[in-house]
Amino acid sequence: MIFDEFAIKSLIRPIPDFPKKGVIFRDITPLFQSPRAMRMVIDGLVQRYVGSDFTHIGAIESRGFLLGSTMAYELNKPLVLFRKQGKLPADVLSEPYDTEYEQAMLEVHADSLTEGDKVLLIDDIIASGGTFVAAARLIRRMGASIYEVAAIIDLPELEGSQLMQDIGVPTFTLTAFTLNEH
């Protein structure tokens, strides 16, 4: 199946003033409701990473779980979950982060990665980069490295992709939106 960026973008629903005034939330649930679009998204990501030199897929809560679990299955890689505070049952490492609309804590099981592991980090969107930076810090604290950050959407005006590149982490997205694009 050929990747069609216009088809993907047309299924990403803008929700103005959610979760707070001034934010345009990019809702990907319509993508998940379209088997064809979902296949394009997953196939586009799998084709990029098949045969790549990484050891684990890291998925960020919660929409990243949907992408990460499918990618881990397709690429036969272990899946590491990065969750909001209080959701993991074993010993965790924690890292605070800020997004464009909240402050929170990201956690991962302390035994998820070891020195030498390389992680492909997945979520639905790169916005301000706060969540990705927190996950990158957790990965590095375990002695592992970040192979690349991947997402469906980039919001370049919020500078998350630039922030990732500034800390030495390459990024890849399937599409991008300007802040006011509908």
Results as ranks from 00 to 15, higher is better:
Met1Ala: 15
Phe3Val: 09
Phe3His: 07
Asp4Gly: 09
Asp4His: 09
Ala7Phe: 14
Lys9Asp: 09
Lys9Ala: 12
Ile12Glu: 04
Ile12Trp: 08
Phe18His: 09
Pro19Phe: 10
Lys20Gln: 15
Val23Asp: 00
Val23Tyr: 01
Arg26Glu: 09
Arg26Gln: 08
Thr29Pro: 05
Leu31Phe: 04
Phe32Gly: 05
Ser34Phe: 02
Arg36His: 14
Arg36Met: 07
Arg36Val: 15
Met40Arg: 00
Val41Met: 02
Ile42Glu: 09
Leu45Phe: 06
Arg48Leu: 12
Val50Ala: 14
Val50Gly: 03
Gly51Ser: 04
Gly51His: 07
Phe54Arg: 11
Thr55Met: 08
His56Phe: 11
Ile57Phe: 03
Ile57Pro: 01
Gly58Ile: 04
Gly58Glu: 05
Gly58Arg: 00
Ala59Thr: 06
Ile60Asn: 02
Glu61Ser: 08
Glu61Trp: 02
Arg63Asp: 00
Arg63Glu: 01
Leu66Ser: 10
Leu66Phe: 08
Ser69Met: 13
Tyr73Cys: 15
Glu74Arg: 13
Asn76Trp: 09
Leu79Ala: 11
Val80Gln: 04
Leu88His: 06
Leu88Cys: 10
Pro96Ala: 13
Pro96Asp: 11
Glu100Lys: 08
Tyr101Met: 03
Glu102Asn: 14
Ala104Tyr: 04
Met105Ile: 15
Leu106Met: 13
Val108Asp: 01
His109Thr: 14
Ala110Glu: 06
Asp111Gln: 12
Ser112His: 11
Ser112Val: 14
Thr114Ile: 15
Glu115Ser: 14
Asp117Gln: 05
Asp117Ala: 06
Val119Ile: 08
Leu120Ile: 08
Asp123Phe: 02
Ile125Gly: 00
Ala127Glu: 03
Ala127Met: 04
Gly129Cys: 08
Gly129Trp: 02
Val133Pro: 01
Ala134Cys: 11
Ala134Pro: 07
Ala135Pro: 01
Ala136Asn: 12
Leu138Lys: 08
Arg141Ala: 15
Ala144Gly: 11
Ser145Ile: 06
Val149Met: 09
Ala151Thr: 12
Ile153Lys: 00
Ile153Pro: 00
Asp154Val: 02
Pro156Phe: 02
Glu157Gly: 01
Glu159Ser: 13
Ser161Gln: 06
Gly168Arg: 03
Pro170Cys: 08
Thr171Pro: 04
Phe172Met: 09
Phe172Asn: 11
Phe172Tyr: 14
Thr175Ser: 13
Ala176Leu: 05
Phe177Val: 03
Thr178Gly: 11
Leu179Tyr: 07
Asn180Pro: 03
His182Gly: 15
